[in-house]
Write a protein that binds this DNA or RNA. Structure first.
Lengths: 247, 247
DNA sequence: GAGTGGTCTAGACCACGGG
DNA sequence: CCGTGGTCTAGACCACTCT
């Protein structure tokens, strides 16, 4: 929302990349460029505006930080779609809440394995050291664009043959239908971050893209830890909504 | 946490700025550089590593995105302190939770005014169009570093002389002690963003710094809207923790 | 006034995507 | 293969901070 408290702006455009940003931004607002559309190439913008390529890129980086555009490596710059809304107080999986927002979700399982619990995981799950845990790494997309990587850990003792199921669907649904497990409580921690290393690679992004790291511990009705989850979201792909009582 | 699901890294350092990032990162991890310490100037790094200034800056930008370092405009680059933890389910103000974490909070009121409600605010507060609302803009710091700008709106009908109090303290405390108001419910929305315009100016940052936009509607026990708040945090200054029941 | 980061130029070559 | 963005160089001048 814009209120009347303060009406200062970035000020006169002594910086050329701000002018270019505003120009592109205006084209997007006006609807000349729609979500998914490809921007002119950097070299085209260069000749169109008579600026050095570095200056052009400065403007593009700023628009990227604002969530207005995104890049596909060595393919080009594109106008961003709106973010999806995620409400951690609802126990519906990614597949259902993305669909409910009229978008098309998809999940790709990158890797699964069952490993003995290390000291940290042993503590998280209240299970003996070395107890078997399922590790799942998945990439999730909205409308064909990869938006998050998740690293999921589930107690193998209560979900023995979990890895035999099709994990490219809703884990929520599998846990409920096949194992009778539902989540009653979520403990969540979030922090803005940069997507680097594996996360950047899996999202096909240059290291350094702003992101949101979300860590979740899910408990069932008996207080048992059901999932231990790390999610790495593109910064421009998600909005978090929560409604909560105050203690 | 690091688990064993995936051990790939950024790979061999064919890119020089990644090497420089790792070098500086290592100095920080090793404790050669501590939170608050100043890094060598860009030109010093240039001669030390034999790289063009642009490449040096590439590495610094990456470290900034990772939250490892921050800049003070035209003064230099500094090692970041750890983030503060914010739990929106607890109704303690900024001043108390920052203090509880052994840090030094401070608040600076930038501007206050009382304005008639526009259509949007009229709806949010369930008050007639034109009803008076207090607008407060504040800058908040931790250990002397500005970390967030907030735009607060409060219903003047239930807090008539609010602006006469010292707003550089805890608003939470003022509302409770002077007006007998406590918050029972928070509706929160969060989204990673870029800090631009006024927010960047007030935080003395270059436009484009990654941030976290947090919007909050607070209700008292009777369901009355008490505060409507917009907070713009530096991305490297905050971590959000929530513990919640699932619906 | 000296030193810092902020902006900008005008090139070059590389690595990867997609036709 | 060509076009794209990704990386890198070697300068320059400016705006601001700090002392």
């Amino acid at each position: 929302m814009e209120n009347a408290v303060d009406t200062r702006t970035d000020g006169p455009e002594n910086r050329q990349y701000l002018g270019l940003r505003d120009g592109i931004s205006a084209r997007i607002s006006a609807g000349d460029l729609k979500p998914g559309d490809k921007l002119p190439s950097e070299r085209q913008l260069q000749s169109e505006f008579g600026l050095a390529r570095g200056t052009i890129r400065e403007a593009l980086f700023l628009l990227e930080a604002e969530g207005a555009i995104f890049r596909r490596d060595r393919s080009g710059w594109y106008v961003s779609p709106p973010p999806v809304v995620y409400d951690p107080t609802r126990w519906e999986g990614f597949m259902s809440y993305v669909e409910a927002q009229g978008r098309v979700p998809a999940t790709h399982t990158i890797r699964t394995e069952t490993l003995p619990a290390d000291p940290l995981l042993s503590e998280v799950f209240s299970r003996p050291l070395g107890a078997p845990l399922h590790h799942i790494r998945r990439l999730r997309s909205v409308d064909g664009r990869a938006v998050l990587v998740e690293k999921l850990i589930v107690d193998a003792a209560i979900t023995p043959d979990l890895l035999d199921f099709d994990l490219n669907t809703s884990l929520t649904a599998i846990l409920k239908r096949k194992f009778g497990i539902t989540v009653a409580r979520n403990q969540i921690s979030m922090q803005p971050c940069a997507l680097t290393g594996n996360e950047a690679v899996d999202l096909k992004q240059k290291s350094g893209l702003p992101g949101l790291a979300l860590q979740r511990v899910s408990y069932d009705g008996h207080g048992r830890v059901v999932e231990y989850d790390h999610e790495y979201w593109r910064h421009d792909a998600v909005q978090i909504n929560v409604d909560l009582r105050v203690r």
